[in-house]
């Protein structure tokens, strides 16, 4: 996927870091699903006045974290209600947890891949998130 201009090395590094932030926070913040969103959000705010390439990738990383938040939160509270509450383990629950794990793993792999590629200055647009990012993130005139 081509970008409107070739990013410089410092831009590629920052853009790549926006994905790495979510990964590091994901590992540090487990099992709380909010930590990675917060970390990516802070990184986005810090870099919101950076160059277009950096902003674009910070936004894509943030959006992906936003969509994972409700999925992971449901999994988190559902699990708590089973462990501490009156809910029992059902097929529905197991199916949901497997699905959430699959989505998280896919997102994890995609994040690592994108972090590597953006570090090389290669622009990666994700399915759905890339399209929203294109709508939100505009070049400064």
């Amino acid at each position: 996927m081509s970008f409107s201009y070739g990013p410089g090395d410092h831009e590629s590094e920052k853009a790549s870091n926006s994905y790495l932030m979510s990964l590091i926070a994901l590992i540090a913040g487990l099992p709380l699903p909010i930590i990675n969103l917060l970390a990516t959000g802070i990184f986005y705010l810090v870099n919101r006045k950076s160059s277009y390439f950096v902003r674009w990738h910070c936004t894509q990383a943030l959006l992906s974290q936003f969509s994972m938040l409700p999925l992971n939160s449901v999994a988190f509270w559902w699990t708590l209600s089973i462990v501490f509450g009156s809910e029992g383990i059902t097929n529905n629950y197991v199916a949901y947890i497997i699905l959430v794990l699959l989505f998280n793993s896919t997102e994890f792999v995609a994040t690592i891949y994108t972090a590597i590629q953006t570090r090389k200055g290669i622009h990666i647009e994700w399915f759905f998130y890339g399209s929203i990012t294109n709508l939100i993130c505009k070049t400064k005139k």
Binding site: N91, N92, V94, A95, I98
Partner: peptide
């Protein structure tokens, strides 16, 4: 689809 499997 995943729900069709008897995980229990």
């Amino acid at each position: 689809l995943l729900n069709q499997i008897d995980w229990i």
